[in-house]
């Protein structure tokens, strides 16, 4: 009898949970679909952005190609040169990815302020977790697509051999790293929520610090000792190290674990922290009337 009651309780809980999850995923789809429609409407801007990123990546990567000419007397083999080029290609690609994700997430709030729709989104019965997961999922897929295009185009300029790349390991690193980027993006999105006029630009400081400390264009060991602890808490550091291991050193999955577990910890910490910060920001905006002001 008690077992039957327990069973009924469990099945009804499971049914209720499945219904809630289903309902929230449908609502999360609202943000993905809306951002897709907006991206389609601004298709020319996508072309401009890809061109900018490719040109930027090429400008940085050619520094490696010119290393021997810049430093008289330096002798490096073609293999070492290719390794340097690949090192920078990965750096520029991940930097583009992080930029697209941050832009997409912060623009979610900025565009809504610009269009005046922010109050309608914030008064809809949608949890902020669903809101941010929907927004960030689109941002990550969008960022990955743009990054792949950039990688392909830039690689064509340098004729690199990528036949031994461990693509599976790359996918795992990007997937795990994205959890942390969702958390950081959510923290960044609170700035345009609170600072109407310049909030979006304020997120550049988060990105700039990540660029400095994460080893995008150089190993973090060249940084002053007092800056290196910051490198260790930046998820981009582990994504870059993991990808460079998988692409340049073409190792299998086991050695990558040293990059994956810190990423998992970053994700577990940054996701709820991002939610908590955004929640606090939203409450402050509702107390002070900052949701209303368009800017």
């Amino acid at each position: 009898m008690i077992d039957a009651i327990r069973y009924r309780g469990l099945t009804s809980w499971l049914r209720e949970t499945a219904r809630t999850v289903g309902g929230e995923s449908g609502k999360g789809l609202a943000f993905i679909e809306r951002n897709w429609y907006l991206t389609k409407r601004y298709a020319w801007w996508e072309l401009v952005w890809i061109t900018y990123n490719v040109v930027n990546a090429l400008s940085v990567t050619f520094i490696a190609a010119a290393a021997q000419k810049i430093t008289p007397g330096l002798h490096i083999t073609q293999a070492q040169l290719n390794q340097m080029i690949m090192y920078l290609i990965i750096g520029t690609a991940i930097w583009s990815f992080v930029s697209v994700v941050f832009d997409n997430v912060t623009e979610t709030v900025t565009i809504e302020r610009w269009e005046g729709t922010i109050e309608y989104t914030f008064m809809a019965p949608v949890s902020r977790l669903t809101h941010m997961l929907g927004t960030c999922t689109f941002a990550i897929v969008h960022g990955l697509l743009l990054t792949v295009v950039q990688l392909v185009v830039v690689s064509l300029f340098f004729h690199l051999d990528i036949s031994n790349v461990n693509w599976g390991a790359c996918a795992v690193i990007m997937l795990v790293g994205s959890i942390s980027f969702i958390g950081l993006g959510t923290m960044g999105a609170v700035l345009p929520l609170l600072y109407t006029e310049r909030g979006a630009q304020m997120t550049y400081i988060i990105r700039a610090i990540m660029l400095l400390v994460s080893g995008v264009y150089y190993p973090i060991t060249v940084l002053p000792n007092w800056l290196q602890p910051l490198s260790r808490i930046s998820p981009a550091t582990y994504v870059l190290e993991g990808l460079r291991t998988a692409i340049i050193h073409t190792k299998g999955a086991p050695p990558l674990w040293s990059d994956i577990w810190p990423l998992l910890i970053c994700g577990v910490v940054s996701l709820p922290l991002g939610q908590a910060i955004f929640h606090a920001g939203e409450r402050y905006a509702k107390r002070t009337g900052r949701l209303k002001r368009n800017g």
Partner: peptide
Amino acid sequence: EAAFFRKLSPMENLLYSARLYG
């Protein structure tokens, strides 16, 4: 003040809203 994503059509705007309300 009618506030919308002005680049989107009425159908796209209202579908967004419909999804938000499940």
